[in-house]
Structure formats: structure tokens, C-alpha cells
Computed example of a mutant assay.
Amino acid sequence: MPSDTLPPAPSPARADLYGAIAGSAATLQAQYLGSRGQRQQAHARGQLAVLRRSAGFTPEQHPLALQSVLDSLHPLLEDGELGTGDTASRSERAAFDAMCMFALHMQSATRPMHVSGRSFGSAMGMLRIRNDSGSLKPRFDALLAARNERARLTHARSLVTLLRGEQIGLDYGRFAQDLRTLASSARGGVLLRWGRDFAVMPRRERERDQTSEPTSITATTTP
């Protein structure tokens, strides 16, 4: 072998939809919040601004935005998740919508908005506890009752801005998986789970508060 022959470049890490979105969101938010230094923070701010401007479009309407989303993923999507024709695959579409909403969610954030393990429905239930003006449940119900994918996404983006206002995060890897399922005939299961989490979360929080209250001890005196 000639001495000037370079070794092959290592293949970039790849993951399924959950791993790609969860890993990318965690990295971007760490950079944005400043834990990786000022240079990385500036990079994340610029990348999130590009993604934020793409919210509300479809990949076909804004091909450059899809390119930006795919380029922002580290790890990358596995080959089986990528499209091969002139339309975006379901995984690409879900990645596009999830990352654009994550960028909306992170705007002016001072804490992580990607929170592993917390579903969209649970996040909305937490919002209901913290700041329920009476209009939240009708808005959440409108999302569950929406008759098409674009209407659901419009409602979801609106609700994400409310979560941003209270700095309540959610698991974006799981959210991306749910968005992909919502585009299929199995959407009813996701909507059922979101509705359950929305209803149950306030009750769980109340029970947690009650069990964490200190037990009052009444002092007695000997006659």
C-alpha cells in the first residue's frame, strides 16, 4: 500500500427516527443553552432560526428547509427512513415537522425543551395545571378532532407556542414518532394516548403534591 494512501473516512452515525430526533434535539439545545461554548451557541442559534422560519411549510413547498432539517440531524436518519422519490418519506416529513416545532419551542428558552420521556399529551396536561385560562382544553380538543394532517399540525404548532410560554418541554423523539403515526391509518392510537395523558397528568400531579405535604403533628401536654 502506498504510504500516501488515506484511510477511509468513518461512516457518520445513523439512527432510527426516534434516535435521530432525540439526539439532535439534545445536542442543539445543549449548544443553544451555552454548555458547549459561545461558538457552538452561535451555531445553534443560527440553525434553530433557519428551522423556525420553515415551520408551517411542507417539505415539498420548501425543499431547502427539508435539506436544512436533514443536515441538522446528528445522528443521521437510517437509509430505510429516507425517501427515494420526488416526495418526502413519512419519516422525513415527521422529522421536518418535529424539528421545526422544536425550533419554535426553543426560542428564548432558558431551560431544556427536549425532555426525555414526557409525551406531548403529558406536557399539555402540565400546562393545564400551571396556566389554564379555560381555553386550553377546547384548543387541545380541536387538535384531537382535526380531520386532516395539516390541520392537526397547525393546532400542534399553536399549542407548542403555549408550552414555550411556560417553559414546559416534551420528548421530541417520541413526538416525531407520533407525528409519523398520525399520518397513517393508526392515528387513532396516538390521539387516544395524548387525550389520556392530558386528562391523567393533572390528577397525578395533585396526588404527588398531597403525598409530599408534611404530616402535621399536634403537640399534646400532660395534664
Score class of each variant (00 low, 15 high):
126 M>Q: 10
139 R>L: 03
141 D>I: 01
146 A>S: 15
146 A>N: 14
153 L>T: 06
129 I>L: 13
141 D>K: 01
131 N>I: 11
156 A>F: 03
152 R>K: 15
152 R>S: 13
147 R>C: 12
137 K>A: 02
132 D>S: 13
153 L>G: 06
151 A>L: 10
133 S>I: 05
140 F>A: 04
148 N>K: 04
138 P>K: 00
150 R>W: 04
130 R>M: 09
131 N>R: 12
143 L>D: 09
156 A>T: 11
138 P>H: 01
136 L>N: 10
145 A>G: 05
143 L>E: 08
135 S>F: 01
125 G>W: 00
132 D>V: 07
129 I>W: 05
151 A>H: 08
144 L>W: 00
151 A>G: 06
137 K>P: 02
133 S>L: 06
153 L>F: 07
128 R>Y: 14
139 R>I: 02
127 L>D: 11
155 H>F: 07
137 K>Y: 02
139 R>C: 03
155 H>E: 11
145 A>T: 07
149 E>L: 13
156 A>P: 00
138 P>I: 02
145 A>V: 03
133 S>Q: 08
126 M>W: 02
153 L>V: 07
127 L>C: 11
126 M>R: 04
133 S>C: 05
134 G>E: 07
126 M>K: 01
143 L>T: 14
132 D>P: 11
128 R>S: 15
146 A>M: 09
154 T>M: 07
148 N>P: 05
149 E>K: 07
147 R>S: 15
